[in-house]
Amino acid sequence: MAVFTRGFGGRRPDSERPVPPGQYLTDDFPVLSIGPTPNVDTSTWQLTIRTEEGAEHRWDWAALQALPAEDVTVDIHCVTRWSKQDTHWRGVPVDAFFADVETAAEYVVAHSFGGYTTNLPLDDLLDGRAWVVTEYEGEPLEPLHGGPVRLLVPHLYLWKSAKWLRALTLHLDDEPGFWEQNGYHLYGDPWSEQRYG
């Protein structure tokens, strides 16, 4: 039998829109970390896409700025059960980075500075469903929230939106990332409550 704690967690906002099952709304943006926050300098930052054949495509900070960015308003859902509605980001759709990438691979592993990884189907990064973002709520993305550059894939649980993004590698098979190797779901759809694998 569950033991409930009177008066704990009673100040959560109500939702006018449905939230995914088992999620609770928050106005905060909790910072959850698995290690020291990497100190990533935009003067040396690079994003690398490496295909299954080993071909590499690179963008430095100036090249990233030259790509067409857009403003994005989305709801985000963390597997630790908080959701946050109407968050505002600015970034480049991932499609822009794949315009000249030739690949037969169906899977991607996103790599972060600091060693974190997470796996996604390539299709979930394309068609305007995922962004490489550099601003949050009108400000440069803070290091604590993944700045200067993170991935944003709002239709999947937030662990898929790798902070401190440095590379996307393409794979013929789905290769589990950090949390996926340790028991979390390979895909992570919040609406189907795909928390654990």
């Binding site: 569950a2 033991v3 409930f4 704690t5 009177r6 704990f8 967690g9 009673g10 959560r12 088992g22 609770y24 059960r81």
Partner: peptide, 8 residues
């Protein structure tokens, strides 16, 4: 462990 009335 604290459990809110909504299960959190």
């Amino acid at each position: 462990r604290l459990t809110a009335p909504d299960g959190y």
